[in-house]
Design a protein around this nucleic acid. Structure first.
Lengths: 207, 207
DNA sequence: CCCCTAACGGGATCGCGGTTCCATTAAGCT
DNA sequence: AGCTTAATGGAACCGCGATCCCGTTAGGGG
């Protein structure tokens, strides 16, 4: 959700130099604040202070906490983590599960993801940005499943995206709902469960 | 999280009649407000108005939005939905998945659950109340898995709670993160995937 | 049935987050 | 390099949500 939309209009817009510097400083500060205080504690004035930027600027460009989070999400979607290539479906899914687990248990990233998801439940535009974020992340890893189909490990017609989602789902469920510990054994189990269900043909698209 | 803890102390506490009536009116109003406006829009003064109760009372007894949500969660944990008894693991899990799906897509309950989870990410006490809520819900359905083990449908040593969680996880993942549609086919797939993974022995506790 | 006081409710008050105004800085075009 | 104006930043302002104060209502023991 580009908040810049109301820039320009008659004159020319200036995304260069200072503006970009302010934007990245504010987004980094917003990430810090979210990780520390959660979404409920996100105060635009505080973000401005952390970023070393005028309060007015932050209110003008992002207006609301959810607007700021939405912009942060579009930036997060751009930096992609490359997928693994272990040669087997289970190996690839396990690598993915461990990566997700490491992210969600990271002292900064974990609280940040919680906060971002909380923000998305409060605002449609933010929810859309979150949806796009996960769509790109999932698409990044889908080829692992496609290769497994080509290798004959999985039945033809298996939905790759659904398999990758199935790996993440239990980890996010623990993070957000059950609150159970998120250890490596849990991550491995998530990968094994997704692989077993996929092998059983559960994710074959029915026509 | 009982907010009543600072009541009494020297005199006697009075949970009867009026107090209980106020509490349930406020909790119902809080549920309505959360479902309509989300956690970010939860205003204690507004809740008081909806409940036909003085602002001061709400501020005194619950103090913060998260405190109110925490109390609401303990009440929600008390009303339990009974589990199904279809005679087969897959039948029971499918019944559970469909029940969860119906709840999450309900025009009132769905937004309410989103809001409650958002609140839990902002406050430790609320997160604990949410954890307890899901623990009771999961425990309610665990016997389905135990019976399946007794019937010989699943290997001995299968962790019942883990199987039940595996059914809910993909549905919550869609609700909160991916934003993909939550239709009945998805619910059935969640049940089938959990059953397949359980049958493959993924949820057997390793000693 | 009466009294004591826990608990509630209305109104006044206070503080802080959000907005507006205008001077200052620096992109970007010629 | 110089000019135009997009964009920033400080400071004053303002409105609304949270708190405080105190009179009123009603639970529950004697």
């Amino acid at each position: 959700m580009e908040q810049e939309s109301h820039y320009g209009g008659h004159g020319t817009t200036r995304p260069g130099g200072r503006t970009a510097r302010v934007r990245s400083a504010v987004l980094r500060a917003a990430g810090d604040a979210l990780a520390e205080l959660g979404f409920a504690g996100l105060d635009l004035a505080d973000v401005a202070r952390r970023a070393g930027v005028g309060r007015t600027t932050v209110y003008r460009r992002w207006a609301t906490p959810t607007g700021l989070v939405a912009d942060l999400l579009t930036e997060m979607a751009e930096e992609s983590l490359p997928r693994a290539e272990t040669g087997s479906l289970l190996g690839d899914l396990r690598a993915n599960a461990r990566l997700v687990r490491r992210t969600l248990t990271d002292p900064r990233q974990g609280p940040l993801f919680k906060a971002v998801i909380a923000a998305a439940t409060c605002d449609a535009a933010t929810a859309d940005a979150l949806r796009r974020f996960y769509a790109t992340r999932i698409a990044e890893w889908a080829p692992c499943v496609e290769q497994a189909v080509e290798r004959g490990e999985l039945p033809a017609g298996t939905d790759p995206h659904e398999v990758v989602r199935a790996v993440s789902a239990p980890l996010y469920y623990r993070l957000l709902a059950s609150g159970d510990p998120l250890d490596e054994a849990t991550a491995d189990r998530a990968a094994e469960a997704a692989a077993a269900a996929a092998a059983a043909g559960i994710y074959v698209v029915r026509t």
